[in-house]
Design a binder for these strands. Structure first.
Length: 614
DNA sequence: ATAGGGTTAG
């Protein structure tokens, strides 16, 4: 629940900035197809588990290691095409290779995440009479799990018995993982409990780690810690992986203090931290801006003989870049090379983003070119960073060239790419081009998300095309995309700009019934609308109200209402608010300053204000 | 050398 609230807050506060919000870092899983209805679904948890885990159930022994092997080479493929070719070659061989070799191919294809390809290869094997073994079944179960088709996973489980095989701990671990991927934690934990109760198939460290990971992904750190406790109480010895998982989850929730506590607990239990533990902690403290702590951890790991790797350095480089210290970041990259750690695409992407943030686009492009010249592949992400940089710094022409370049280079522009460019066009007033791109992305199979609609809605509103905006808003709802507070804020602003302040007020007050919480930006937009419509007392009322509703005004809110008072010649009230604003650590923005200086020059305000607005 | 788990960049 907390995780969801946090997600909502972040989504709302990310506002109109395109592309690089921290939303993507949320552990919200992108779901695949909905599971197909499967008559065997009910089979599992009731019939199967009750039978399997029944006491004194006699079972055949599980085939452990194959006695003889005809494998002379390790199967390793780089892509799906290679795998399919190999598979076909194997089918031509006489005698046919053993199922073990086929399993190797299936495993490789599964590792490439081509899960449905694995299923169809397995079907072909079946047609050709290549009998699957228990390993094959486990592979197939895993693939159905990743395809969010637990029903089919469970029906494969049924096949185990028909073929005379026995599910083992790997089978159950895979199923647990599958349930977690479908957000069925209760079913997942249920399997664990059955395993513990029956003693037929004891959970191993994988079982626990899978469950811990699943609970952490849902933000359930407490549940994860409880599982850890169960392990420590004798269910299974915890290892560094389970600690790393929980430490990472705590760090991602900015609970670095708890993460460090768990870290020392782990070491006192005699479990040695590894490079991943340190990378996770360093990442956690860097995200909180605790640079000194990051350096301390870095030195600590080195003193323990744990060598920083490309991940460690990438965290440091990225943090420095985000702080605007690209120079420092660059020297870290040099340090990497000295230590024989090769920078990768991630490193270069961070540097590029760092330069883009400072508007140093030539330097950003230079990093991009260096990356390519060193033989690294620019990924979609690299292009998105650079395209975003160019768009934000008014070079949409350059951004467009990159967009064409990436498409030509075989990279598929994603929703982020399109969102970035659409925003770029909108911000340059080229709404028509933005709309064309909006159509293109859909033709190319990239689905617009809430952010896409928000960007385009904002463009239309700012271009005074209110009716078009409302049409688009309806289209969005028709696509079952839930408009968030950002979208409503844009519409409210659009209505205000279009002089329909009454409509804006109605929409604003309807937010609460929609379960949406206006954020500081929403309030500021509404206050600004009221001020511009001359409704200064209503604006003031809302200004007081927002604080009561737990939303503190920021610099922008203060500047807006202060200008409102000045424009209504309510100088003393404006001055009182300027004092309040300064006390709260905010300062006058350019437009307020200009207004005050103008009033000062006409002797309309107290000269003492000058000191305040500096 | 057949199956299942953990870390970084938007």
């Amino acid at each position: 629940m907390l995780r969801m609230m946090r997600a909502a807050t972040i989504a709302a506060s990310s506002s109109l900035k395109v592309g690089y919000g921290i939303g993507s870092r949320l552990r919200v899983k992108v779901r695949g197809m909905p599971p197909l209805p499967c008559p065997l679904r009910n089979f599992t948890l009731f019939r199967f588990f009750n039978n399997y885990f029944a006491p004194f159930h006699s079972r055949p022994s599980y085939p452990t290691k194959s006695t003889k092997t005809q494998l002379h080479q390790l199967v390793k493929v780089a892509n799906l095409d290679d795998a399919l070719r190999l598979f076909d070659e194997m089918l031509q061989m006489r005698p046919l290779p053993s199922v073990v070799r086929f399993n190797q191919v299936l495993t490789q294809v599964a590792k490439l995440k081509h899960y449905s390809a694995v299923i169809s290869l397995n079907d072909q094997m079946g047609l050709l009479g290549i009998g699957p073994n228990a390993y094959t079944q486990n592979i197939i179960i895993n693939c159905f799990c990743h395809l969010s088709q637990m029903g089919f996973s469970l029906s494969v489980l049924g096949k185990f018995f028909k073929l005379g095989f026995e599910p083992n701990v790997v089978t159950f671990n895979t199923l647990i993982n599958g349930f977690l991927l479908e957000d069925r934690e209760a079913d997942a934990v249920g399997i664990l409990n059955k395993m513990m109760e029956s003693g037929n198939c004891k959970p191993d460290v994988f079982t626990f780690n899978i469950l811990v990971k699943g609970l952490c992904m849902k933000g359930n750190n407490v549940g994860a810690m409880q599982l850890l406790k169960r392990m420590e109480q004798g269910a299974c010895n915890p290892d560094v992986v389970v600690y790393n998982t929980i430490i990472d989850s705590l760090c991602k929730d900015t609970l670095v203090v708890d993460a460090l506590k768990l870290f020392s607990e782990m070491t006192s239990q005699g479990i040695a931290p590894d490079v991943i533990t340190y990378n996770t902690l360093i990442h956690g403290v860097c995200k909180l801006g605790e640079w000194k702590e990051a350096v301390r951890l870095f030195n600590e790991m080195v003193s323990k003989g744990i060598f920083p790797d490309v991940f460690t350095f990438n965290v440091l480089v990225d943090t420095l870049c985000k702080e605007g210290l690209v120079g420092e970041a660059k020297s870290k990259v040099e340090m990497m090379t000295q230590r024989d750690i090769e920078p990768n695409t991630v490193t270069y992407n961070s540097l590029m983003d760092g330069y883009c943030l400072r508007g140093e686009m030539d330097e950003a492009k230079e990093v991009f070119d260096i990356m390519l010249s060193k033989g690294f592949v620019a990924d979609t992400h690299s292009y998105n960073i650079l395209i975003n940089g160019y768009c934000k710094h008014k070079r949409i022409d350059k951004a467009w060239i990159l967009f064409l370049d990436m498409s030509g280079g075989g990279l598929v522009p994603n929703t982020v790419t399109y969102n970035t460019l659409i925003d770029g066009f909108c911000k340059r007033g080229r709404i028509h081009d933005a709309q064309k791109l909006f159509a293109t992305m859909q033709v190319c199979g990239q689905l617009p998300d809430v952010q896409t609609y928000a960007i385009l809605l904002d463009g239309l509103c700012k271009d005074q095309q209110l009716s078009k905006a409302i049409e688009l808003f309806e289209e969005m709802k028709g696509k079952r995309l839930d408009p968030n507070i950002v979208v409503y804020s844009i519409l409210i602003e659009g209505l205000c700009i279009g002089g329909k302040v009454e409509c804006a007020k109605d929409l604003f007050s309807s937010l609460f019934s929609k379960g949406l919480q206006p954020n500081v930006r929403t309030f500021t937009i509404m206050i600004s609308g009221l001020c511009n419509a001359g409704l200064i007392s209503e604006a003031e009322q809302l200004f007081t109200e927002m604080e009561e509703k737990g939303c503190s005004p920021d610099s922008c809110t203060y500047n807006t209402i202060i200008r409102g008072f000045f424009n209504k010649n309510e100088t003393s009230r404006a001055m009182r608010l300027i004092h309040e604003m300064v006390e709260r650590g905010w300062s006058a923005d350019a437009s307020t300053t200009e207004l005050i200086i103008d009033l000062l020059s006409r002797d309309k305000v107290d000269p003492s204000l000058l000191a305040l607005i500096k």
